[in-house]
Nucleic acid binder design. Structure first.
Length: 564
RNA sequence: GCGCCCGUAGCUCAGUGGAUAGAGCGUCAGGUUGCGGACCUGAAGGUCGUGGGUUCGAGUCCCGCCGGGCGCGCCA
């Protein structure tokens, strides 16, 4: 007797049912209790082959060693319990049938009831479809992009921007509260450096070799307001700083506009200067000092990072009295935690991996849980045009901007590209190839399926056929079977994405769902005025497919068009 | 030199210790009296970089080697 909660993902219902069967087998003495040691978790997976059922469990294989019995024997005993449950026709029981296969797999078939109940849920609450019960509700701060305001965002910033946004969406889908945050390094020497380049152009002098050389610097010089310029010239040595401040603000506005183009919205913008002004950096340094985690040497103040496993100690106050960038990082950690976050995530390029340990070490030294400070490092993207690598240098003015990339490739295709690849894999992005193949891009395949369904539903309205509220009796066989099974899997995909903090499972799933829809479309006529009841049932299934496609694309920030 | 990441089909990439390693693109051969052909069906294509080890079972875990990327500042 198994009572399943229909609001849980089907895989979870099945897992509970298999676990219950195992417990019953133990209770009636058919299986011995597990001896001391780790108890195998009940794992439910989707078999690669359709003849292995809808879902499968390797539980018997896992139990073989601790129970010291043959996996096939264990599988048969558990299968008998599951089969008895199914034979009772317990209302809502998710499993309709079970087979045992060598070397000890339990192959499970879903019941019509669970399929019907799930499709009915999709139709009753389309917006809620795919939301999973929160596993680990937390308030999370996700900091990403955080490029210096010394030039426009380039394609080099693209991956971090998309990964940060996609990760945020996936965390939200998993029930967490996410704040998207951007950190501007507006202190240091790069702002005056940018100012120096603008000043040089304005004076008709050559730009310094280590200055910034892009066309955008020329534009900045041309747009420099007269009052800023006269203030700068009057200030003498401070001219670079004053012009740099203005240029930085100007560049920042452009960065914010580019990010809006990407569909990436930040909740909080923080500047390094504001952290210093509000005293966060000083207080953090004092906190480390009070804890005995710093020492002076060569006139500088060092954080004893080696005490937490780093390979060297790190300077936080230079011998000239200036705090380092790392000191601001430490202050920022305390400032973020003061806002009530349980968890801080940093999205960094792989070139920053050397700084991971020191920031987490400093957090631990200040009394925070280092596990609450997490860095997600993404691998570098090799941008290629016609097979030749595009080398980029913001200072030398050699780069392709993010805006140009979007103009060439399109935001949906670009989002799909990054969503379908794990963050840690090094990838090639051939811009010409992306353009050439844009018509063949899988994202359009998925969007086309959505548009096709929208067209069918319009057709149905014209024929005065409305989708049924539920689909009954036709899901175990025929063209409906594969499509229904693809639809109901969506919450599991969301759950896996939230758990793994990766999105490529979602793109793979969306592609497969689109494939199942296209196959259904081939085999089943949906709008047929001669068969109104069957039409209404098929319209309901197709509407559920459309909702699922739209929600999967929505999870990735990709549009679901009514027509293309 | 040390540390981290990566190596899977022609190309771009999935693969959470399980069954005959998958998808898209590309290539080849087919498909439309019908709701959108941006679609569908099929085929070819793999020593999972390499050599050991652990395991009932390894693309997956451990060790060595080869190849590629990145890092090793009182820069940011």
């Amino acid at each position: 007797m198994t009572s399943a909660d229909p609001s849980l993902p089907i895989r979870t219902q099945v897992r509970d049912a298999v676990a219950a069967a195992w417990r019953r087998a133990v209770a009636r003495g058919a299986l011995p209790d597990t001896p001391d040691g780790p108890v195998p978790a009940v794992e439910i997976e989707r078999p690669a082959k359709a003849e292995h059922g809808d879902l499968a469990s390797n539980l018997a294989l896992k139990l073989a060693r601790p129970l010291r019995r043959a996996p096939l024997d264990i599988a048969r005993i558990i299968a008998d319990e599951i089969a008895a449950d199914a034979a009772d026709r317990t209302p809502g029981a998710p499993i309709a049938g079970v087979d045992v296969a060598a070397p000890g797999f339990l192959n499970l078939r879903l019941s019509d009831q669970v399929l019907e109940a799930t499709i009915a849920r999709v139709l009753a609450d389309p917006d809620g479809w795919g939301r999973v019960p929160p596993v680990n509700p937390r308030a999370v701060n996700v900091e990403f992009v955080s490029a210096n305001p010394t030039g426009p965002l380039t394609i080099g910033n693209a991956r971090g921007a998309f990964i940060g946004d996609l990760l945020s969406r996936v965390l939200e889908a998993g029930g967490q509260t996410v704040t998207r945050e951007y950190y501007f390094n507006d202190r240091g020497g790069q702002i005056p450096n940018l100012g120096a380049s603008v000043v040089a152009i304005r004076r008709g002098e050559p730009i310094p070799d280590d200055g910034y050389h892009g066309d955008y610097v020329v534009s900045l010089a041309a747009d420099l307001p007269e009052d800023v310029w006269s203030e700068a010239t009057a200030a003498g040595a401070e001219a670079n700083q004053i012009v740099g401040q203005w240029a930085g603000m100007r560049v920042r506005a452009g960065i914010e506009a580019s990010l809006e183009q990407l569909g990436v919205h930040f909740d909080v913008w923080t500047t390094e200067a504001s952290l210093h002004e509000a005293g966060w950096v000083d207080r953090a340094v004092e906190r480390l000092r009070a804890g005995g985690h710093v020492y002076e040497q060569d006139g500088a103040l060092w954080f004893r990072s080696t005490a937490f496993g780093d390979d060297k100690d790190r300077v936080i106050i230079r011998s000239n009295g200036e705090p380092t960038y790392f000191a601001a990082d430490i202050g920022y950690v305390t400032e973020k935690f003061s806002r009530g976050f349980d968890h801080l995530i940093y999205i960094w390029g792989a070139d920053h991996h050397g700084t991971v340990a020191r920031v987490r070490n400093a957090a631990e030294a200040m009394g925070y849980d280092r596990e609450a400070v997490q860095m997600l490092l993404y691998a570098w993207v090799r941008f290629v045009r016609d097979g030749a690598e595009i080398s980029m240098s913001k200072r030398a003015g050699e780069f392709v901007t993010l805006d140009e990339l979007l103009e060439e490739v399109g935001v949906d295709a670009a989002r799909w590209f990054f969503a379908s690849r794990a963050a840690t894999t090094e990838i090639d992005f051939d811009i010409e190839l992306a353009k050439k193949q844009s018509a063949e891009n899988p994202v359009y395949y998925v969007q086309y399926a959505h548009a096709r369904i929208a067209s069918i539903l319009r057709k149905a309205t014209d024929a005065s056929l409305a989708p049924a509220d539920a689909v009954e009796g036709s899901l175990s066989a025929g063209p409906e079977a594969a499509l229904a099974r693809a639809i109901v899997r969506f919450p599991e995909v969301v759950e896996d994405a939230a758990t793994s903090e990766e999105t490529h499972g979602v793109t793979a799933y969306a592609t497969e769902l689109a494939t199942q829809f296209h196959a259904f479309y081939r085999d089943a006529r949906v709008v047929d005025e001669a068969e109104p009841e069957r039409s209404r049932a098929r319209l309901a299934l197709v509407a559920a497919a459309r909702t699922t496609l739209a929600n999967a694309l929505g999870l990735l920030g990709i549009s679901a068009p009514e027509s293309m």
